[in-house]
Design a protein around this nucleic acid. Structure first.
Lengths: 190, 190
DNA sequence: ACCTGAACACCGTTCAAGT
DNA sequence: ACCTGAACACCGTTCAAGT
């Protein structure tokens, strides 16, 4: 990769990224097994055979997707919240208040859920999920630490906080049982 | 191949259940799209065509799986904990202490995760998940209510409790970040 | 009642051939 | 460099035919 010139890098990566982007759309809709070459090719307006110029096989596409997801998920930690909001409790509160019903948020949640299921049978996927979970838990624990909690308590609070975030994305509730944005008080965010 | 002279009702359900059971195994390993008729037939030692005697098509198998999962998941609520443990906080504690690393627990978690992903694109699956979530949240809220919490607080505590349970099944952690069985104190379980 | 076996359509993969 | 088009294997579905 390092041997390529700058001009060549962008010339081929554009089409490869188009494949990966279409693959994430399919992943969000139907899981990893819905990432099928023929439908992707039809959506991109090319034949199946052209796929094998960009990737050696389906597994190579999967690998590229995991690499991309790692990058995005890592980047989002902390940066979703405006950096001009330095107070840790404010940052956590804003994380809780992030809308999870927008198309973008729904797509991201579906992708992540699909990857977590995929991780149950794929070692590479499991490693990516493990890595991201550690990064996020570490970040939340750091914020709780800045709020004055001791390391052990900060880690426990971080776990509860992260669990709540995941649950709000995955649990299917109606209006009655959805406690919505009112969790802050229970998570030591006063 | 057991004798079926006793009850006529079980004459066909035995083979149908064999298909459903094999289908859950496939679901746990590879998601709903891995529930494929040909591999299932091979595992059951029959041809693909025989599937269509028991089910009209793949969708009918999916429907039967959801019905079965609803039944099992509903039955498990509350009954996993010995009924001779009537104290609500003890019941919640024991729920937290349930092993989630046994093959049985891992299989159940994989099945549920697969169904939650499936629910993102299938209305029937979404309804089943919604129903089970309501049943569970209601049960936990009832226990918190018995512990003296007001209805609103009980529902919030139930959500946090349920979120923790789900998270411990879905979050991929290593030894350092896994706070393990030490959540009881944070969930008002003293 | 329950299953086989052949038929057809759909998609993953390969590869020679095109531009 | 990037893609086509044909080929083959695999699996969902149908159905006439077997027991």
């Amino acid at each position: 990769m390092a041997s390529r010139s700058a001009a060549q890098t962008s010339s081929t990566s554009l089409d490869t990224d188009a494949w990966i982007d279409a693959a994430f759309n399919a992943l969000a809709e139907g899981g990893i097994d819905a990432v099928r070459i023929d439908p992707l090719a039809k959506k991109l307006g090319v034949t199946r055979g052209s796929f094998y110029w960009h990737f050696t096989d389906r597994a190579a596409l999967h690998q590229a997707m995991l690499k991309e997801w790692r990058k995005r998920a890592s980047y989002q930690v902390g940066s979703r919240i405006d950096n001009r909001t330095p107070a840790p409790d404010e940052r956590l509160k804003q994380n809780l208040a992030l809308p999870n019903s927008t198309p973008r948020a729904k797509r991201a949640a579906a992708i992540e859920l699909a990857i977590r299921l995929w991780a149950q049978r794929d070692t590479q996927a499991a490693r990516a999920v493990k890595h991201i979970d550690r990064v996020r838990l570490g970040y939340y624990a750091k914020l709780y630490g800045e709020m004055g909690l001791a390391p052990a308590a900060a880690r426990k609070s971080a776990f509860l906080f992260y669990a709540s975030l995941l649950a709000r994305a995955y649990i299917v509730t109606d209006g009655e049982t959805d406690v919505g944005d009112d969790l802050a008080g229970m998570l030591s965010l006063y």
